[in-house]
Amino acid sequence: MFRILRKSLKTGIVTGQHDASSTSTPTVAGESAEKARSFRRSLAIREVDSGSCNGCEMEMNALMNPVYDAERFGIHIAASPRHADALVVTGPVTVNMEKALKDAYRATPDPKLVIALGDCACDCGMFKGSYAVTGPVERHVPVDVKVPGCPPRPAEILQALQTLMGHAGVAVKGRALKPKG
């Protein structure tokens, strides 16, 4: 018991201890901005892997760790597309995942947003043209925001999500867990 307490006190608060995103903020316009307005304070995300290398998944997971702690901005992960406001899709959409992706999209209640995460999801990356790939994501479902990168850093994902939710003003200004060497 005391050991746990001591550990927590010793660790302190690590949230926000990361470099700020260095990429430009994606633009959200027109209909997407309109839809996003209803999710200003809370965004439930369902992550759909349509054939990623799992690098993008790892960074989505990192988003939930104490350092990035996306929950403090009202972003959380829903267990089913039926409970989601937005789908985050990774991967180039394989022939085997195409139907599952469309099903997940259909199961998500309107209004809904789709975020294509990573180079694979944006334009199939290295797998463009492969017999096993039918993407990119926007060929199958309408995409509202693209977050390029292979994989995009968690700070970049967070910035994109915040822009989408319209709190660009409070974008995380982080600092690294350790200063640059």
Binding site: C53, M97, Y131
Partner: peptide
Amino acid sequence: WKHRGVEKVFENLSLVNGVSLAEKVSG
């Protein structure tokens, strides 16, 4: 479900360039 055709895509690459695909086999 996630079969992307990695081994076939390798055959389009040169020995030197294959490494960037190898990095994406399992992130």
